[in-house]
Structures are given as C-alpha cells and as structure tokens.
Design a protein around this nucleic acid. Structure first.
Length: 259
DNA sequence: GCCGAATGCCCAA
DNA sequence: TGGGCCTTCGGCG
C-alpha cells in the first residue's frame, strides 16, 4: 500500500537495522529463490529509496531492487523469524530484525549498470532534499497531458500516488483535467511545496493526513476528498472518474481552474 | 467462501 | 488505450 513515504520509511528503518550487517536471505514463497541464494550471508552496505523504489546495496555490487506495485507490502518484526504470513517473496534478517516483502511487482538483483538505469528514469523525488522542482516544472510545461496524469507519472515527479494526487489537487483548487502546461510556474511550485510538505508529514507519522483542521484525529477526517462523497469545504457531491488508469476525484465547486 | 477493489506500472497494439 | 500482473482484504452471501 505504497505511496512514496511508505518506501522511504522502510528505507530509513531497514538502513538502521541492516547496514553493515551480514544478512540471511530467503524466499519462503519460492519465486525469488535464486536471488536469495546469491544474497544469503552477504553484507548489506546500505538501504535507500528513490521515489517508490527500494534498494538494498550488498557487497560485491549486488543491488536488490524492490518495487511494491499496487499490492505489495513490507512488514518487519523482531527476530527470531516467525512463520511467514501469506506469500513472502523475500525475507531478510539478522540477529535482531526480520523484514518480509509480500507481493512486490519487482523483486530482482541488479548490477551497477541496471541500477543506474533505473534511478535515472525516476523524476525528482519530493522526499529527497536535493530534488529540484525546476525539473518538475520544465517537464510539465513540455507536456500536453492533464495535471492529474502528470502527478502520477513517476518520471515527472516521484513519490505521489493516487491518494496524494487527489488531495493535493483539491487543496490547491486545481481541476484534475486541467492541462499541466496551462498552469503557471507559481501554481506548479505551490503544488510541489504542498506535496513536499504532505509527504514529509506522512514520512514522519506513517499516516496520510491532508486535512489541516484540528478535528483530524478521527481516521475518517484525515482525508478531504479521496473516496469521499461530499466536499468537506462546500458539501458539493464529489465526482469520480478515471485518469491515468486510476480513480480521480473532483469537487467542481472548489476545483475551478479552467480546462 | 467468493468477488471485487486497491496507496502501481509495464507492454503490446 | 486496454489488458495483464503481483496479493490482500473487506463486504457480501
């Protein structure tokens, strides 16, 4: 269930637990047995995230590349290893921590060349401090696609998923169908900053909370528009439709940029 | 127990 | 642009 913050949280946690440690690696489900055998008993040097991609760098230039896709999950628990829950594609553990990954779209070993190719395809990542919003703006300006499609394109801007897309557009009163290149540079910078702030908060808390109101303690009040029936600002019925293969949400009263 | 949906992405046409 | 794929979970009977 991964937007960018989930992956970055895992990277930070696993890096702390595993960097410099020799790991046991297996594939309880079996579909990554070969790779697991190659990694088993090797030392993990670091764990890091680029957008929604998670990388474990091992000695001898082995890069374990994981992408959760829509259904993937990462779980961890204290050693000793428990019985695998569900289809555990890969399990990594040392004497204190066990990490299980279920249902990833990608679980593969990469050499340095492949690794570099992969990270070069990823656009500026809202959760990386060195990310350059100008790259995002330039790419949007060059495209004819809707802003909702562009925000989901990880080569344009990395880290946003369907929940953040809906929430960021609503917060900034932008119609999802609006062509990205018709937005001003300031609009785009504002979208960037808002996304950055929301993802940062999600990284720190582990929760997606996009409603600033004080009352957002209840789970049902933490989001504004994603899967909602009514707009919390003006009570207009929320519309939903597909953009870029995913359900998109719109309050036509609040999100009034022309399109 | 079955069915559909789900915080994603790739590839063939 | 549409279908396929990875797996889990909740709602419905």
């Amino acid at each position: 269930m991964p937007e960018g913050h989930v992956i970055h949280r895992a990277a930070i946690k696993h890096n702390k637990a595993f960097s410099g440690k020799k790991l046991s690696v297996s594939s309880p489900q079996g579909r990554f047995s070969k790779g697991a055998k190659l990694l088993n008993k090797k030392t993990c040097l670091k764990v890091e995230a680029y957008g929604k991609h998670l990388f474990y760098t091992f000695e001898k230039d082995y890069h374990l590349h994981i992408h959760l896709g829509l259904f993937g999950r990462i779980r961890s628990h204290k050693a000793p290893p428990k019985d695998p829950r569900g289809q555990v594609r890969i399990r990594l553990f040392d004497t204190s921590t066990v990490v299980d990954v279920n249902g990833p779209t990608i679980c593969e070993l990469q050499d340095p060349t492949d690794f570099n190719k992969t990270i070069q395809k990823i656009g500026p990542d809202l959760l990386r401090k060195d990310a350059d919003p100008q790259i995002f703006i330039d790419r949007v300006k060059k495209s004819k696609r809707s802003i909702a499609a562009l925000l989901m394109d990880q080569s344009i801007i990395a880290g946003i998923g369907n929940i953040f897309r809906a929430e960021i557009l609503w917060r900034n009163r932008i119609n999802p169908n609006q062509r990205g290149s018709d937005l001003t540079k300031d609009d785009l910078l504002e979208l960037w900053r808002d996304g950055q702030q929301l993802l940062d908060k999600a990284l720190r808390t582990g929760k997606i909370i996009t409603n600033d109101a004080a009352a957002s303690r209840k789970k049902s009040e933490q989001l504004n528009i994603y899967k909602k029936k009514q707009c919390p600002r003006c009570s207009t019925q929320i519309q939903s439709f597909e953009i870029a293969n995913r359900t998109c949400y719109l309050c036509e009263t609040c999100q009034t940029t022309d399109c």
